[in-house]
């Protein structure tokens, strides 16, 4: 693969029809259909429509102070979506992120209440997340059990352990300095937000430019072929699942700081929120296809929709209905686009 295919590193599938595309037939429609960023463009259009509508009926909603205030609930999902995207790109899945958060939170709280300094408790939480992810990685990469089964098992197991060691009790009363990481802005944004932006930028560069990124897509496309080509598939998977666990450990710290409580029910259902955003962002659940721009658009669209409905209509039941409708729309559009491509 040469440097001219920079964009195709994001879309390896784009190579499939090389040479036949534009020559196959004239017509603006066909050229339009072969545009590779349709999914992202559609998500962007939907997002703009939503924000325009929101701005016209509730101008207050778009104020920067309000948006930053509401963003509390975005960053947690966003942080976990990055490793989840890479795992899904390889054709895998990590269902245990929510339970890992819960275990990390409980370990953090117990370490702290047993007299450890705050920094040590934080390290313990992230290390717990890393260990959980590493365990998933071992089973997926070395024992070669399907990731769905492995992480379904650890989804139950990690939360079970968290409930066991905390005895189901909530632990509160952390120092104000710790709570501040979830309530105070640095340069106009939550620290969590900056962490996500930095991580997302780095991930984007790695996916587009580094061999690691290309290997990810290769594994997702055909793992056997990737392995025979000398790609260290097992090591990469071990790394990805560990990364996912570590991100969950870090996210747990922010979540605990926000509510000043660590309880075993923290992060319940988180895995579905994260996977929904990733898949909505155009990442194929079978692996090999998708990119970070789409995932960020997906995250923003779901989050803005949720927050706006809650802001405007104060109806918790409505949110799931509309998010569901949005997902169905996106799936149908994807299928329609794919059908359009083949019309050439």
């Amino acid at each position: 693969m040469t440097a001219t295919n920079g964009m195709n590193a994001l879309h390896p599938a784009g190579n499939k029809n090389h040479g036949t595309g534009p020559a196959a037939g004239p017509g603006a429609l066909k050229r339009l259909a072969s545009f590779p960023w349709w999914h992202e463009v559609i998500l962007a259009i939907l997002l703009i429509c939503l924000l325009t509508y929101a701005g016209s009926v509730a101008p207050m909603f778009l104020r920067p102070g309000v948006q930053i205030g509401l963003s509390d609930r975005l960053w947690n999902v966003a942080l976990l979506a990055l490793p989840m995207m890479m795992i899904i790109l390889t054709g895998g899945i990590d269902l245990s992120v929510g339970s890992t958060m819960s275990l990390s939170a409980v370990v953090f709280a117990l370490t702290f209440t047993h007299g450890a300094p705050l920094w040590l408790a934080c390290v313990a939480a992230v290390a717990t997340g890393l260990a959980c992810g590493f365990l998933n990685g071992i089973f997926v990469a070395w024992v070669r059990v399907h990731p769905l089964i492995v992480t379904l098992a650890t989804l139950a197991a990690f939360r079970g352990v968290a409930e066991g060691i905390s005895l189901g009790r909530g632990i509160s009363g952390f120092p104000p300095g710790f709570q501040a990481i979830a309530h105070h802005n640095i340069l106009g944004l939550r620290p969590e937000g900056w962490l996500f932006i930095a991580a997302a930028a780095y991930t984007a560069i790695v996916l587009a430019k580094a061999p690691f990124g290309r290997y990810l897509y290769a594994i997702g496309h055909n793992e056997m072929a990737a392995r025979y080509s000398g790609i260290p598939t097992a090591k990469m998977k071990l790394f990805l699942y560990s990364l996912s666990g570590m991100a969950a450990g870090a996210a747990a710290l922010f979540a605990v700081a926000r509510v000043d409580t660590a309880r075993a029910n923290l992060g319940y259902g988180m895995e579905l929120k994260v996977i929904t955003a990733v898949v909505f962002g155009g990442v194929s659940i079978f692996g090999g296809r998708g990119n970070i721009v789409g995932v960020i658009m997906g995250l923003l669209l779901i989050y803005e929709t949720r927050e706006f409905i809650s802001w405007q209509w104060n109806n918790d039941n409505l949110i799931s209905i509309i998010i569901g409708g949005l997902l169905i729309t996106s799936v149908l559009l994807q299928v329609a686009l794919r059908a359009g491509k083949t019309a050439q």
Binding site: M7, N8, H11, A13, G14, K16, N17, H18, T20, G21, P22, S34, F35, P36, W37, W38, H39, R289, L337, R338, A339, K341, T342, A343, Q344
Partner: peptide, 10 residues
């Protein structure tokens, strides 16, 4: 840079 999706017969 033409085809984002794998072609099929639709």
């Amino acid at each position: 840079m033409n085809n984002f999706f794998v072609p099929s017969n639709i």
